[in-house]
Amino acid sequence: MKKYLMLVAIAVGFLAGIVLVNYLVGRRESFVQPIDFSHAVHAGKYKIPCMACHQGVMMRASAGIPNIEVCGACHSTPMKKTPQELLVYKYVSQHKQIPWYSIYHVPDYVYFSHRRHVLLGKLDCKLCHGDMAALTSPPKTQFLQIKMQNCWNCHVKHGVTTDCSHCHR
């Protein structure tokens, strides 16, 4: 009987451990974006191309999150006076960068270039980022998870190089 109880105790402890780890890991990923930015309004309703704001797509490895000067190009005066837009206007008028939380992180040992994929490879943004024009609030998770398997699948499918040193550095 004692042995049975001990086994149960170990099992319960194990499960509690899993729950605790999940809770801690989950907490680390939770974040609140400073502004409830709507891609649906910008890219969907007004049909602003992605490259207008994410200006590094064609030129650099990183597409980049637009800085406040890019926002200020249109929002130098409030247009619609919605509460979210007034928040943007506050940042613009104070010349302060919006502290966006970036959800796409390429590891240090991986070389990923947007220019290579979008300009040279002629890939659609939707392939990795999903239909951003349908999102009314900033994405909470990565659409295509940054995992080597995902890169590999696409590279094999399209017959692109799978040489290690082309991506790993």
Binding site: Y109, D163, C164, S165, H168, R169
Partner: peptide, 15 residues
């Protein structure tokens, strides 16, 4: 570590 087709001997650190 392996030899690339262009002759460079590469080293893959995560590996």
């Amino acid at each position: 570590t392996y030899k690339r087709p262009d002759g460079i001997v590469a080293q893959i650190y995560p590996q």
